[in-house]
Write a protein that binds this DNA or RNA. Structure first.
Lengths: 244, 244
DNA sequence: GTCCAAAAGTCTGGAACCAGACCATTGAAG
DNA sequence: CTTCAATGGTCTGGTTCCAGACTTTTGGAC
């Protein structure tokens, strides 16, 4: 360091190699999967042995995490054949003050960080996707996700919205980019879950979603980038509005 | 899973919680810091106790990593007061075949992944930065980094180039975004180090760097995004050219 | 009704990792 | 030339985490 301390990158590179112990990180991961709706209400997690292998941890550690989530009321574990860990979580209806509480938990600066990060990676993903030649299969997927959001029941709205946004990143074919977008989204899920889903907002978002898809299918990176930026600015403004 | 297996995000969320053991991850991190030039030739790493704390690992584990890097010839460790671990690494002059070898090591699909990821996050960062009000201090920093690349000796060129690109991300004020850009860059450093630094390429890059800075200082997100996209496409094309 | 396969639940020995105390070396200041 | 502070080097006991073998429960197939 010393001589080059100020050059750059020191902050991001010399940060902790591990976010916490294996147990904590596993709980966090599973909770994210549940809250993002990757595994929805009533769905079953993969068998312990398979899941432990996928997460790269031992069964013992995974079981501790599952038990913690069970005790917290997120999972229902049943044994025997056809048993498993079933998700029983439903996003709670937001109450006044939830947002304030959620923001206080993460900190104001973390909020700005998350919103900035999300803006950058999602705009980047849309730009990249619009700039690549899309096959008929990919176009279908994109349209299907768009329809799914528009047809979603209020209780499913957030989940479908997440699926739509992540689909854009995943269709780029870059796992790194998809991971970054998933990361960005889950850093604001708690906040979004804390504000009510209102009709005018949904309609506004629907128009923006349509514009995003249109730009991507048109192969116009600039329009795609602008559409996503506009959409996310709207979301950020909504959040700040509820905070004020 | 099952019911929602196809929805999305499963791949990125149910991936391994830890990339390897603490030792391996630490070696990797330090090596990245060295190769990205965060700590340049002759610089000293922070004292073991401090570095271990920053990396969130025990001194024992850190020392193992340092010893590995010492044996690999990247560090020179001296004891006593004013001692420490000094970087002795200089980026090697590329030889014919190095690139092919580096690509084979990481895999073709990982290469595409890395290039796509980098395109998305760096374009996003430039867009965000151009869209934010910059203070005089930030403008200075940006110009300084630009000059540093242009004035760099050939041996320092890559390092200054990295510092320039990362500065854009860091100036957004988002640690998450800065981290993503650092990650993206280090995934291609080995490849870029494997191709020679040629005059025409440097001049071409210099013009593009200038265009990026101009767009950002003008507060034009679209122009900034386009300039970065163009620049990175040039780099990607260069890589592919050397591979063909 | 019996059997079987798939799943959760349990146990054990060992490896990895850690926190903290202590030792050894070095170069500068007095 | 003695002292001292900052640094790397070493040791010890305890915790976390792991791999793998084994047990129990469950519901369907025959």
């Amino acid at each position: 360091m010393d001589g080059a301390a100020g050059v750059t990158g020191a902050v991001s590179l010399l940060r902790p190699v591990r976010a916490g112990n294996a147990f904590e990180e596993t709980v966090e991961r599973l909770l994210q999967a549940i809250k993002l709706g990757v595994v929805g209400h009533g769905d079953k997690l993969p068998p312990e042995r398979e899941l432990a292998a996928r997460l790269g941890i031992s069964r013992v550690t995974l079981r501790e995490a599952i038990r913690a989530l069970q005790e917290a009321g997120y999972l229902d574990v049943r044994r025997g054949r056809y048993g498993g860990a079933f998700v029983v979580y439903r996003p709670p209806s937001p109450r006044k003050g939830d947002l304030r509480r959620a923001v206080n938990e993460m900190g104001e600066s973390d909020l700005e960080d998350a919103l900035t990060f999300r803006m950058a990676v999602e705009c980047g993903a849309a730009q990249v996707l619009a700039g690549s030649r899309l096959g008929p299969r990919q176009r279908e997927t994109l349209n299907a996700r768009l329809s799914a959001v528009n047809d979603a029941a209020p209780a499913d709205y957030r989940r479908m919205d997440i699926a739509f946004h992540l689909a854009i990143a995943e269709l780029t074919g870059s796992p790194l980019l998809a991971g970054a977008c998933a990361d960005a989204r889950l850093r604001v899920t708690d906040l979004l879950n804390a504000i009510p889903v209102l009709r005018p907002n949904i309609e506004h978002a629907a128009a923006q979603h349509a514009a995003i898809v249109e730009a991507i299918l048109d192969g116009d990176p600039e329009a795609a980038r602008r559409a996503v930026a506009e959409h996310l600015e709207g979301t950020a403004a909504l959040l700040r509005g509820f905070l004020a």
